[in-house]
Amino acid sequence: MTATILKTLFILIGLFAAYKLIFSGKKGLTLFEMHFKEGRLTQHKGKIPERFERECRAIAKTEKLTCVVRAEKVGNVRLHVSANVSDTITQRIRNQFPFEYYDKKQVDNSKQTG
């Protein structure tokens, strides 16, 4: 009887650990997400810097990309590109991304008096 309970308990703990490992990957705030299919922007979410969107569309159109480009903020901003994109194209996309746009400190004017 106790052996059956222990086996069930170990199975439940294993399933819980597997669930946590699989679904706990995304921890940051997604700033934006762009979905490309055969070189065309099919869907997007968030506020995308205009110049970066224009350059990404141009790269995707010339290379006929089918991928997802996502910017995520976890302390600092990280740019994720789908794994099916070659390293050279990924680097071209990263070179166009305005990291300095997100690194600058924003002043809170609501607390300033004067």
Rank of each mutant, 00 (worst) to 15 (best):
K26H: 14
K45Q: 09
L12E: 01
A17Y: 04
R78G: 01
N84F: 10
R51Q: 08
R57A: 05
K105N: 13
K20D: 10
G39I: 11
T2N: 15
R51E: 03
E53D: 07
E33I: 00
V107G: 01
Q112R: 08
T113E: 11
T2C: 08
R57F: 02
K47N: 14
L31M: 06
E50D: 15
V74E: 06
Q91G: 04
G28S: 05
H80S: 03
H44E: 14
C56D: 12
F16L: 12
T66I: 06
Q91F: 10
F16V: 01
F99I: 01
L9C: 07
F97P: 05
F97S: 13
T2G: 14
F16I: 13
K45C: 09
E100A: 04
K104N: 01
I59A: 14
P49G: 06
Q112V: 09
K104P: 03
L29N: 15
D103P: 00
F97W: 08
M34T: 02
V107K: 11
A18S: 14
I93L: 06
L31A: 01
R54W: 06
A71T: 05
A3Q: 06
T66P: 08
T30S: 07
R78D: 06
V74L: 05
R54Q: 11
I59N: 15
F32T: 00
H35E: 12
D108L: 02
N95H: 09
T4H: 03
P49N: 05
V77T: 07
K47E: 11
E55R: 09
S24C: 11
L9M: 14
L41D: 06
E50N: 15
Q43I: 04
T113V: 12
L31V: 11
I48A: 07
R92A: 04
L29E: 10
V77K: 02
V69Q: 02
S82I: 01
L29A: 15
E55N: 10
L12I: 05
S110C: 00
F10I: 09
F10D: 14
D87Y: 05
Q91P: 02
V85G: 00
I11G: 11
E72V: 03
H44N: 06
S82Q: 02
E38I: 12
G14Y: 08
S24R: 00
V74I: 08
I48Y: 01
T30N: 08
K105M: 04
A71R: 02
R54H: 14
K20F: 15
T90A: 07
P98M: 10
I48N: 03
I59W: 14
F16Y: 13
K7M: 07
F52K: 12
G39Q: 11
E33A: 02
